[in-house]
Design a protein around this nucleic acid. Structure first.
Lengths: 353, 353
DNA sequence: CAACTTTTGGCAACCGCTTGCCGCAACGAT
DNA sequence: ATCGTTGCGGCAAGCGGTTGCCAAAAGTTG
């Protein structure tokens, strides 16, 4: 910028050239170069309106010249805020969580926050541990599909700001992906295709969403006079699909609604191996619409969820909790809509058993 | 839903938006409880042999009782090390990088380090920027498939410890996934199936591995007297697969070696759409063996790579650089072996054009 | 038992930045 | 002119640890 501000008598410190090239420039170096106190530099950089425009520009120039980057460590130490948020997922291997992570990453970056990624390995102990160990290094937490008990969750939420994803809770803000309501759609879909004997393939018993899905499934299918089965629990990985597929076949069901796509895809593979045709012999409906659900064989009918968006919403809920806007109370619940995406893994019920 | 608005207790709660009845215990609290000086506590916790066993136990007890967790911020401030490593990936959306991240995450956690995940969005500017902005907050960097120029890389490597993945460099330790050598296997495979006209489907021009793959492809296919084509560049996403497939078909090639699986899977989808059979009409070979390569339709023949392991190795190379063991020089290059995994997307060359 | 070496623990100076408080100067209103 | 106000910048006290240096305590040795 062409600034026409000669500013005479500025106490320039010509001698203060570049300091030791080894050491990274500190706020002091900037202050020295700009001829002001460190406190002024600090303010110029964080609350621009607090200092005179001229001074600020001078400081900014000095900072730019020195290539100054404030130490987030030091900032955190004195301000008490780390500008970092920890995201805890049960299994970093699962594509579902990758979508979450992608969403949180995106939104956090936009807000100038750093994401600390933690894999809790499906263990509530690790989750608690991380929550505890990192309380100093993160301003808040996002718990994706927390494995914590209600009591644990309540306790933790009293200590630190957090938002849960797919885990209803009265004690913390939550974003839930409304898969249950889409299960009704799925059921209708199956019913209209003539299926009468259907089976729910269960995921981890500690998963809240698994319980929620099963509950709706049972209620609604019974209501429709369908014969329901329930198999599981299975680990939500493709490798568990074989066992799940075999169990499903044994129930004699003509269609399955599966806890998630990972498991469903695994089942697809196993069924193909066994020569059981999908959807001619059995229909499969997954859940989440993860990466791969559209190109597996056959392409999977599934309950599509805005997973990435859920991550983004969780972040904004957390941030509004961390930096409350005086007037507005922060949202406590966000429900992400879902819908059934019909592909090729569902079809008419076979004519006879 | 029942919206429980957080009750703002005292109107004088500025920074901490959370009710903080009890301050977090500091090293001072521990010292007080144990009846020693803070310096002793510090030492008892970090260099146990420096303090008497009896005192140490007393301190540990006190720390445990108070549930003390040292502030990594403060530790970092005074010790100069952050115990954090930044992992930069060009596209967090790409499953290939998921695997890298999984590997780094795993290994970093094992070493007590925190992973800072950054998506550079395929942009060298963002990459440089992150490298610059985070130099204070990370002890080192892992650059996966860096988009930096050689010059930039050299410059950066002079400033901070880093390890590159899939990016040869003389200035930094590197782990390369040896896809090129497996390309020879792929070529042999195709040749033995009778393919004579083959095509390389190119990825991002800024990608070092893309260039490396193309180079080997060209040299070796020519050497074998095959007719080679080259199409691209294409963005390495399934959505680019359509264009790639169409272009590939136009070349008249009977087989393609594709920059990566993502693109290959996209091509598979497009070819199916167009009624072009794989592998009867055209064979496709991908690269990386990402999640999904085994269950797409048809399952993809691909160059399998130990991606996750590459991430792990990168971390250990970086850590040995950060905490050098006096005697041993740290490794500068790790080559990860790859091999061709033959599935169903390759078959005999069609009898006639 | 004195002289000396080795442990062991405390003191205090930082690390880099934020922030409450204060003072000074310029400005506006009386 | 006088007396607030307000705007702006400096001072200095931390934030929670780490660490070099030193002295007291304990252990060795002749």
């Amino acid at each position: 910028m062409a600034t026409v501000t000669p500013e005479p008598g500025a106490k320039k410190v010509p001698a203060a050239g570049h300091p030791n090239p080894e050491r990274m420039p500190t706020i002091r170096d900037v202050a020295l170069l700009a001829g002001v106190a460190t406190s002024t530099v600090s303010r110029a950089l964080s609350k621009p309106e607090r200092v005179n425009r001229h001074t600020r520009e001078r400081i900014e120039a000095a900072a730019a010249e020195l290539n100054y980057v404030p130490s987030s460590q030091a900032q955190g130490l004195s301000s008490g805020r780390t500008k970092a948020v920890a995201v805890l997922v049960p299994d970093i291997t699962n594509p579902f969580y990758f979508d979450i992570i992608r969403g949180t990453q995106h939104q956090l970056k936009a807000a100038g926050y750093t994401q600390l990624l933690v894999d809790t390995e499906e263990s509530s102990e690790m989750e608690l541990d991380a929550l505890h160990k990192m309380r100093r290094s993160a301003d808040g937490f996002i718990l994706a599909a927390s494995r914590l008990t209600d009591a644990q969750l309540v306790e933790v939420s009293g200590t630190q700001p957090l938002v849960t994803i797919n885990r209803a809770s009265t004690s913390t803000p939550t974003v839930v992906i409304d898969t249950p309501s889409a299960i009704i759609q799925a059921l209708e879909h199956l019913a209209s295709l003539g299926h009468q004997r259907i089976c729910y393939v269960s995921g981890p018993p500690t998963s809240w969403s698994n319980r929620a899905r099963w509950k709706v499934f049972e209620e609604e299918s019974t209501k429709r006079g369908m014969e329901t089965h329930h198999i599981g629990p299975f680990t939500p990985k493709t490798t568990s699909g074989a066992a799940a597929a075999d169990a499903a076949v044994r129930t004699g069901a003509t269609a399955c609604i599966v806890f998630n796509d990972l498991l469903a895809i695994g089942m697809l593979q196993r069924l193909r191996e066994r020569g059981i045709r999908v959807p001619e012999d059995i229909s499969i409906i997954g859940s989440d619409d993860i990466f791969g659900a559209d190109f597996c064989n056959p392409p999977l009918t599934t309950i599509a969820s805005p997973i990435e968006q859920a991550g983004r919403v969780a972040v904004s809920m957390l941030l509004s909790q961390l930096n409350p806007i005086p007037g507005r109370a922060s949202r406590q619940l966000a429900v992400m809509p879902t819908h059934l995406t019909i592909r090729a893994s569902t079809g008419p019920a076979p004519a006879h058993t």
